[in-house]
Simulated scan of single mutants.
Amino acid sequence: MMKNILNTLAGLLFFSGLNAQVGIGTSNPSPSAVLELNSTNKGFLMNTVSLISISSASPLGSHTEGIWVYNTATAGTAPDNVIPGLYYNDGTKWVLMSISNDMPKIGDIKSSMTNADHNGWYLLNGRNTSTLSANARTSAISLGYPSAIPNMADRIIKGKNTSEAMAATGGTNSYSLLQANLPNLTFTGTTSTDGTHSHTYTNRGVNYWNYNAGSLATTRTVNTETRTTGSSGDHSHTFSVPSGGTNAPFSQYPKHMVVQYFIYLGK
């Protein structure tokens, strides 16, 4: 077996030395290619390695621009973590090959109509990180959530200001109109306290007349009595105006559509 391999390699080297191209599966390689593979039922198997991070050359001795490998490991800490896939080296780091510019990164957040975890996206429902997969748990811890991931239930996303902690929660779904929220307006009024004076109040009530329209009795409101306060001594009066309110809270939610929020923690 070893003899056959050596003979094959020797033949390829001899052929490449004569023609400057090597063809595997073809006797007529392209003159523009150093190596051409040709098969109708087989593919090219890239060498596989276990990378440890984007910034580390390991298991290679150093970063070498142009080297391609297929990584089989999920390792490292965001944002230098690696996932299984095809990588090339740009001379300073490993770069994951992707045909999509929208490939998610650890910590990305999206909204979706999906209700369950999928493809490395985890529902932000406040669950303990101990319930996540090993890789997702590592990513969550690297993002600063060692105990639990945030809970987005009944919340909207707010941009961080300089004094807030990432993933801090706040606000309320409703608020009450308090006295401090009212305009600073004062109603004033006084009665005269000069001299003796009296006040008259006419009470109005219901007086039933002896008249029927079918089976219904007819009523009429009339003045029933007049009352007058005593007139001795100076005195003043106060009055209050009840609002009739019940302190019911206002809803702060505008018209909206309900979705789920997910965080990408890797596959």
Rank of each mutant, 00 (worst) to 15 (best):
M2D: 14
K3E: 15
N4P: 06
I5T: 08
I5S: 11
T8F: 13
L9C: 12
L9H: 09
L18F: 13
A20M: 12
A20Q: 15
A20Y: 15
Q21V: 06
I24Q: 14
N28G: 08
P29I: 05
P29W: 02
P31F: 13
A33D: 08
V34M: 09
V34L: 08
V34D: 14
K42F: 14
G43N: 09
F44G: 07
M46K: 09
I52M: 04
I54M: 07
S58W: 07
S58R: 07
E65P: 00
G66E: 06
W68D: 04
V69A: 03
Y70T: 00
Y70M: 01
Y70Q: 01
Y70C: 01
N71L: 04
N71Y: 00
A75I: 04
A78V: 03
A78H: 01
D80T: 02
D80W: 07
V82F: 02
P84A: 08
G85Q: 06
G85I: 02
L86K: 04
L86F: 12
Y87E: 04
Y88V: 02
T92D: 14
K93R: 15
L96Q: 01
P104Q: 13
K105I: 00
I106P: 01
I109L: 09
I109E: 06
K110E: 08
K110T: 07
S111H: 10
Y122M: 07
Y122F: 14
N125S: 05
L132E: 00
A136P: 00
S139G: 00
I141L: 06
P146N: 05
I149Q: 00
D154A: 11
R155L: 02
I157P: 10
S163Q: 12
T172P: 04
S174R: 02
A180G: 10
A180I: 07
N184S: 15
T191C: 06
N203P: 00
G205F: 06
V206S: 12
Y211R: 14
Y211L: 13
N212S: 14
A213V: 11
T219Q: 04
T221V: 07
S231D: 09
S236Y: 15
S240Q: 12
V241F: 13
P242G: 06
P242K: 12
G245H: 10
G245R: 11
T246Q: 11
N247C: 04
A248K: 11
P249N: 10
Q252H: 08
P254K: 08
M257L: 14
Y261I: 00
I263L: 09
Y264R: 03
